[in-house]
């Protein structure tokens, strides 16, 4: 269960504008991480403020992981799992979906707008979709600006 943090240092894009923004992408090992591999292999770039964290399955993403990300200053949390029916563990992605549905109102109530948490299905062969989804999510986060919880150093 390696959850390695990687931050692609990418030349040629303007990083300074959103240097302080942090987007965590919690992705499943089987589909979305493979898509990230493919994106890498085909040399597709995704925004530099995104850090990928690999999970075996989105179904193992505890609601507390998401809370923890936001309390720790994440400005956006992106969750990438297999398409329904594709989950290596049959229904892990659907578990993630219902969990996210349940935690969204909690986040919204405490001042974390629902746009800061996004779930996408990205299949193993969809490197391009991974790039597009991460880019559009990063753009949304950029528009929202830093999270209210950023820098509060809450745990």
């Amino acid at each position: 269960m390696n959850t390695g943090i990687s931050r692609p240092e990418e030349a040629g894009t303007d990083n300074s504008r959103h240097k302080e923004l942090d987007v965590l992408a919690l992705v499943c090992n089987w589909c979305t991480y493979t898509a990230a591999d493919l994106a890498g292999v085909t040399r597709l770039h995704y925004p530099a403020q995104v850090r990928l964290i690999r999970f075996m399955c989105t179904g193992m993403i505890d609601m507390r992981y998401i809370l923890s990300c936001f309390l720790d200053g994440a400005d956006g949390v992106f969750i990438g799992g297999c398409h329904p029916g594709d989950c290596h563990y049959l229904t892990g992605n659907l578990k993630a979906r219902v969990r996210i549905k349940g935690i969204r109102p909690v986040l919204e109530s405490v001042g974390i707008p629902p746009q800061r948490l996004r779930l996408e299905w990205i299949g193993a062969s969809e490197g391009k979709k991974l790039q597009e989804d991460l880019t559009s999510f990063a753009r949304v986060i950029e528009q929202l600006g830093p999270s209210d919880y950023k820098g509060m150093n809450l745990v």
């Binding site: 507390r64 923890s68 309390l71 809450l154």
Partner: peptide, 28 residues
């Protein structure tokens, strides 16, 4: 590590997390 950030860290730690966890687990 966290104590090294601006303002230090409140002890006992984890109280905000505690309340949010209870909300996440039990709000339904």
């Amino acid at each position: 590590t966290r104590a090294g950030r601006t303002g230090g860290i409140r002890l006992p730690a984890g109280m905000t997390m505690f309340h949010l966890t209870r909300l996440a687990h039990m709000a339904h």
